[in-house]
């Protein structure tokens, strides 16, 4: 019984979706840059700028991939990002000595939120949409109510995360790359990863196979919250100080779900992976950059983005056998 869950192969191969999507995105970006004469965007600096557009959403989406793979979902990430950014700048107050305590406190807070989300979903049996919508509202409310006393700015040294680079490669990209590799490794090569696929693909089967499904769901939620925390810390470094609306204004909740699903991860859980999610994030980044170069009207952009989200998912979803809701 335990053998068939040890190494689950995704039914839809993860890589082709990711490669196709990434290829299309890069092609779109290159063509737009050439057509509009913005060839400077194809230089090293331009490409680094494009990839930097991926970092915040990419970090959130990596975490979202974990919860979606396990058959859950997390809408509280947007509020959590705001909370972390505000908390980090409040604790640091520009003092480099407070960097480590602030980071630890923020990640600790994220772990608690992830634990609460996970516990309510896994042990309370409450629908994850409602749980995370609720916790998101709670965090957002407390944050907005106490923002007046939670002001401050991160330390200059901390902003290196967002603005520093080595050999022309921004640290933030290295951070995203490292965490992506780590997430990919965990999902593909570890027992925990195998369990995530097993629980998402067939919870009853996983339980019969002796997996404590509740624990796996809870852990996935903690992973998602920690990744949201990483995104919040990155944004705090980039924006110097957090405001209680950066998560909501960035629509990181719905966008992280959208890119994950565009990347081929199935909402029901059990199929998908990190590569696809990153390709989805790259698509969104190239759309942002490309629409800028084309000078597309802000409202029209929204229309196009809506249509592209549907089309991008439809391309691989249409082959699904059976029903989706």
């Amino acid at each position: 019984m335990t053998t068939n869950i040890a190494k689950p192969k995704p039914a839809i191969p993860d890589l082709p979706v990711a490669v196709l999507l990434a290829g299309l995105s890069i092609g779109f970006f290159a063509v737009v840059a050439l057509v509009t004469g913005e060839t400077a965007q194809l230089s090293g600096e331009g490409i680094a700028g494009l990839l930097q557009r991926m970092v915040a959403l990419g970090l959130v989406a990596l975490g979202q991939t974990f919860v979606i793979l396990v058959g859950s979902i997390d809408l509280s990430v947007a509020a959590l990002i705001s909370a972390v950014a505000v908390l980090a700048s409040h604790v640091m107050q520009g003092d480099p000595a407070m960097m480590l305590p602030a980071v630890l406190l923020c990640l600790g807070f994220c772990a608690v939120v992830g634990f609460v989300n996970g516990a309510l979903v896994a042990y309370g049996g409450i629908n994850p949409l409602i749980v995370t919508l609720g916790t998101g509202l709670i965090i957002q409310g407390v944050l907005a109510a106490s923002f007046g006393v939670l002001q401050g700015a991160v330390a200059r040294e901390f902003q290196v995360i967002a603005y520093g680079s080595v050999l022309g490669v921004p640290y933030s990209l290295l951070l995203l790359a490292t965490l992506s590799l780590a997430a990919g490794f965990v999902l593909d090569r570890t027992l925990f990863g195998a369990r995530i696929y097993a629980v998402g693909g067939n919870p009853d089967g996983a339980r019969l196979a002796g997996i404590r499904t509740e624990r796996v769901i809870l852990s996935a939620h903690m992973v998602a919250s920690l990744f949201a925390g990483a995104a919040g810390l990155y944004l705090a470094a980039r924006l110097q100080s957090g405001t209680p609306w950066i998560g909501r204004d960035g629509i990181y909740d719905l966008e992280s779900i959208a890119v994950t699903v565009i990347g081929g991860t199935i909402l029901a859980g059990g199929k998908g992976g990190v590569a696809g999610t990153l390709a989805g994030v790259l698509l969104f980044a190239t759309l942002d950059a490309g629409f800028n170069m084309l000078g597309i009207d802000a409202f029209l952009k929204q229309v196009l983005r809506g249509a592209i989200v549907i089309a991008a998912v439809a391309v691989h979803a249409v082959r699904t056998k059976g029903h989706v809701a």
């Binding site: 400077a40 980039r238 924006l239 950066i246 204004d249 800028n292 802000a298």
Partner: peptide
């Protein structure tokens, strides 16, 4: 270029405008 109310995007937008050299 329109940042859609997102700080993060506006920073990237400004960086792209400056590096674009136009």
């Amino acid at each position: 270029v329109d940042a859609e109310g997102k700080d993060d995007k506006q920073i990237s937008d400004i960086e792209a405008l400056v590096s674009g050299g136009k």
